[in-house]
């Protein structure tokens, strides 16, 4: 590993000062599960490493006026152990449960998964369908952006060099909202998604197979996570009565994704599996009277 200048901030203010001072030559470390691997491979050009892992103001989960806040230093294990998340953000919970291994989930943070901006980042598809917002702060002020606006390409975001992700928040899931996160990997543990899909739908009422709101997102099938708007519209405008109807809707996924072939899967396989994963997820939900799996 090359020589580094290690800096540590214990407050948001001090982190923002460092970021502003070193601007183009500073990289943030939190859990380090991704960055340390890159440092070892000499893939990090910055010489200053800013450790934010001790900033207490950036760690925690809380509810406020129908919104659930998951602060960026929250680890995936914290998310899995939170009753609040289990109740009000269970799609995110399902996604975080598939990340890495116990050791990685114990150290890796939600904020890190977001700012790394991998098209295959598992939490990101779930945050898309839970319509999360991000608060970005610099010494000049702060701004709030939607999770969809945040990503511009693989590993690329709109985060400015002097900005810090300080909050991740989303509306609490309502009683009549359902959904799932599904991931296809080459194995169960320590697998990068070949692709993943997340769905959130609001049911019109008990006993019906109709929905008045739907959000669908696919991961690892395009340069960023993408929304499946044709699928969403089809869910809202039809009744999901039969497996045939569900398959018809799932087939629309084909037109939403623009995957590439890489070491994990071919383009064609990803296209086919985006349909199948969505189909399987919707069928499972229907078999359980549209209630989340527990």
């Amino acid at each position: 590993m090359k020589a580094l200048n290690y800096l540590r901030a214990d407050t948001i203010d001090s982190a923002l000062q460092y970021l502003d001072e070193f601007k183009q030559d500073i990289r943030i470390i939190a859990g380090g599960t991704d960055l340390v691997v890159r440092l070892k491979q000499d893939m990090v050009k910055e010489n200053n490493i800013l450790d934010i892992s001790r900033i207490k103001e950036l760690n925690g989960i809380f509810r406020e006026n129908g919104t659930i806040h998951v602060l960026p230093l929250t680890t995936h294990t914290d998310i899995l152990e939170s009753e609040v998340i289990d109740k009000y953000a269970f799609i995110l919970r399902e996604a975080c449960a598939t990340i890495g291994s116990p050791q990685i989930r114990n150290r890796g943070t939600l904020g890190g998964n977001i700012v790394n901006a991998s098209p295959a980042g598992d939490s990101i598809s779930a945050l898309f369908v839970q319509t999360a917002k991000l608060k970005l702060k610099s010494i000049n002020g702060e701004r709030v952006v939607s999770i969809e606006e945040f990503f511009t390409g693989p590993g690329k975001t709109i985060l400015k060099p002097n900005e810090l992700l300080v909050d991740i928040f989303m509306p609490e899931l309502e009683e009549n909202e359902t959904g799932f996160f599904k991931k296809l990997g080459q194995r169960d543990a320590l697998a990068i998604s070949v692709l993943n899909v997340a769905v959130k739908m609001r049911r019109r009422g008990a006993g019906t197979n109709t929905f008045d709101r739907a959000v669908v997102a696919f991961g690892a099938v395009a340069p960023t996570v993408v929304r499946g708007r044709r699928v969403e519209n089809a869910i809202i405008s039809s009744s999901l009565d039969s497996s045939k109807q569900i398959h018809y809707i799932a087939r629309l996924a084909f037109r939403e994704v623009s995957p590439i072939s890489d070491i994990r899967a071919s383009l064609k396989y990803r296209q086919d599996m985006s349909i199948n994963l969505l189909y399987e997820g919707l069928l499972d939900l229907r078999a359980n009277d549209w209630k989340r799996k527990t």
């Binding site: 540590r8 340390v36 114990n106 150290r107």
Partner: peptide, 16 residues
Amino acid sequence: LFNGRSVNACLILAPQ
């Protein structure tokens, strides 16, 4: 175990 949680020691910078 790092503060009670299992972690990969190869991924923690020594100053952390």
